[in-house]
Computed example of a mutant assay.
Amino acid sequence: MAAAVAVERGDIGQYRGVRLELVTVDATGAQVDLSCACMFTHEVDHQPMTGGLANLDAALGGQLAQARRDGAFRAQPLETLLITPPAGAAQAPSLLVIGMGHPEDWSPATSAAAVACALRVGHLRGARSIAIAPSILDTGIHSDEDVNGPMLHGFKTQLDALQQLHSLGLAPAPAIEHWVFDTGAAHFPHKLQQYQQAFAAMMR
């Protein structure tokens, strides 16, 4: 029996009372109120899904991929699928799958929009903790573009909007206290440093 792999985690920063963290988990392993994964209409070159997205599909008995094949969930841009996972399938009581459209059309702005979507849905559900797995590498996308900065900006802009809506008396105050970006274990210290630098730049 293989030994359990230790989870690495590191603080990115705090904004409006929300602690942002980078953690080496996927959508099934995140211990939060709402765990979010991103899914494209297909994988690059129509290869099989891998990594955390494949783990999520396996935990759901292959039904996520089946739903996409059947057209019940097509993973079009910002299409959402809210799932109550079966017992033992995930650490979180609720899973949200966010559509990302065609992987050939992906840009960092696509992932930023997904982050904002995750925060909006979490707000509607009164979630205190939310995690998101960008699923970029799982889909086969390899890019040198900065995605950490845009995702952080998507979070900040959406949280600012939710707070403004609350101040106008149009919505309850956001309950969110803890936000997690899921990541793979490879090069974790470097990824954490990139997030921290992007956060510091955003706050200047």
Rank of each mutant, 00 (worst) to 15 (best):
A87P: 00
A133E: 15
R120P: 04
E79Y: 01
G51Y: 10
S129V: 02
R120K: 09
D70C: 03
Y15S: 05
Q194P: 03
A198M: 04
Y195R: 01
R19V: 08
V97L: 10
A6V: 15
A127Y: 00
L22G: 00
Q194R: 15
M39A: 13
L56W: 11
R69L: 15
P86Y: 01
I83G: 04
D45Q: 12
P108E: 00
L56I: 11
G122I: 05
M49C: 08
G52A: 13
Q197V: 06
L159P: 00
A185G: 03
D105S: 15
H123F: 07
T139S: 08
L170C: 12
T28L: 03
A27G: 15
A54K: 15
A112T: 04
M151C: 07
E104K: 13
A92V: 10
H153G: 07
M203W: 09
A112W: 00
R74G: 02
L60P: 00
R128S: 12
A30W: 01
L95N: 03
A118V: 09
L170M: 13
Q66S: 12
H102E: 10
F181S: 00
T24D: 12
A90T: 05
S135D: 14
Q66D: 14
D182L: 02
D182Q: 07
A131P: 01
L170I: 10
L119G: 05
Y15Q: 04
A54Q: 14
C117Y: 00
G184V: 07
G154M: 05
A198I: 02
D144E: 11
T50N: 08
L60C: 04
L168R: 11
L124R: 11
D70E: 10
V5N: 04
P85F: 02
D45T: 02
S129R: 01
N148H: 12
A114V: 07
T50H: 10
H153S: 13
A133N: 15
S111I: 05
H166A: 14
L137H: 11
A90H: 04
L152K: 02
L170A: 14
K156C: 09
A30D: 03
C117S: 07
V115H: 03
Q66E: 15
I176L: 15
S35G: 06
S143I: 01
G184H: 13
A116M: 11
G99M: 01
D70Q: 06
M39H: 10
A127C: 02
C36E: 08
K191L: 13
T110N: 02
G126A: 05
A65V: 08
G122P: 04
L81T: 03
V115E: 06
D33P: 01
F199R: 01
L64K: 05
L64N: 02
W179N: 02
W179G: 01
Q196T: 10
A75C: 15
Q158S: 11
P86L: 02
A75V: 10
F199E: 07
Q158M: 14
A2Y: 05
C36H: 08
V25D: 10
Q163H: 14
Q197C: 04
L96R: 03
P93Y: 13
P108H: 00
A67H: 08
Q76I: 07
L165M: 13
D146K: 13
Y15R: 08
I132L: 15
L60Y: 05
G169N: 09
Q158A: 13
A186F: 14
V7T: 15
